[in-house]
């Protein structure tokens, strides 16, 4: 298994950042099969893998193709779980053949972190199995443990929560809205626009914020009546 990817420094923008890795022209394209991509996470919540692939034997232009979309790396974007863990993406999860370039798109919806990136990125070349030596395949490590933080979402998905529930945790929501307000950023989002409303994995802070506004709106309406 040869390692042929280079390390590439990534710096987090506000919501997302991306990194391209090109394979040197010297390596014959048809042999660019990837076995595994491993990396160490540093506060990236989701990673999307896009591959620039060229069909073998054709002179057609290479095409970008999304191999993996929004793979969760952290249990919850706002808390530490998975924030500094090692991960690997195995060839069974993507189809990484005839690859010219690999693009990793990183996203972090939480404003809690100052920066996020991936470290120690290594790409391993796929080797055709030579013999039936079992010793390597015995210990195939589990690759991902996706845990989507849905518990917060379920809570709000059926409309407004009941007043008692809200009152017990209203102070926390209030504090969150304060944080959201002071946290309005002017930094550019970069080339990848992130629209959270279309995503089913909403950022809990945004949900809370929206919910609080709705709650306040209802209270105001009642006071007019």
């Amino acid at each position: 298994q040869g390692e042929f990817g280079a390390l590439c420094p990534l710096h987090g923008a506000v919501f997302g950042s991306c990194c391209d890795m090109h394979f040197s022209q010297g390596s014959r394209i048809r042999r660019n099969k990837i076995e595994e991509i491993t990396f160490k996470n540093y506060y990236t919540a989701y990673v999307t893998v896009r591959l620039l692939r060229r069909s073998p034997g054709q002179e057609a232009a290479a095409k970008w193709w999304t191999a993996l979309r929004d793979l969760p790396l952290m249990d919850n974007p706002h808390t530490e779980g998975g924030s500094q863990d090692y991960f690997s993406i195995h060839r069974t999860q993507v189809e990484p053949d005839h690859v010219v370039s690999v693009r990793l798109i990183l996203r972090q919806p939480s404003s809690a972190w100052l920066t996020f990136n991936l470290e120690e990125i290594k790409i391993f070349r796929f080797m055709e199995p030579v013999s039936s030596s079992h010793s390597k395949s015995v210990m195939r490590f589990p690759v991902f443990h996706p845990v989507v933080p849905v518990h917060v979402l379920c809570w709000f998905s059926q409309g407004l929560p009941d007043p008692q529930t809200v009152s017990s945790s209203i102070q926390q929501m209030w504090a969150l809205t304060e944080v959201m307000q002071t946290n309005q950023t002017t930094a550019s989002i970069g080339r990848f626009d992130v629209s959270w409303t279309q995503d089913d994995r909403l950022c809990p802070q945004e949900v809370l914020h929206a919910s609080v506004s709705r709650f306040i709106l209802v209270v105001l309406m009642f006071s007019f009546i």
Binding site: Y43, L114, F116, A175, L176, E178, V179, T182, N183
Partner: peptide, 13 residues
């Protein structure tokens, strides 16, 4: 790496 620029009073915790 945690953003601690806010005042403690508006912190959620």
């Amino acid at each position: 790496n945690h953003d601690s620029s806010e005042e403690v009073s508006v912190r959620s915790h």
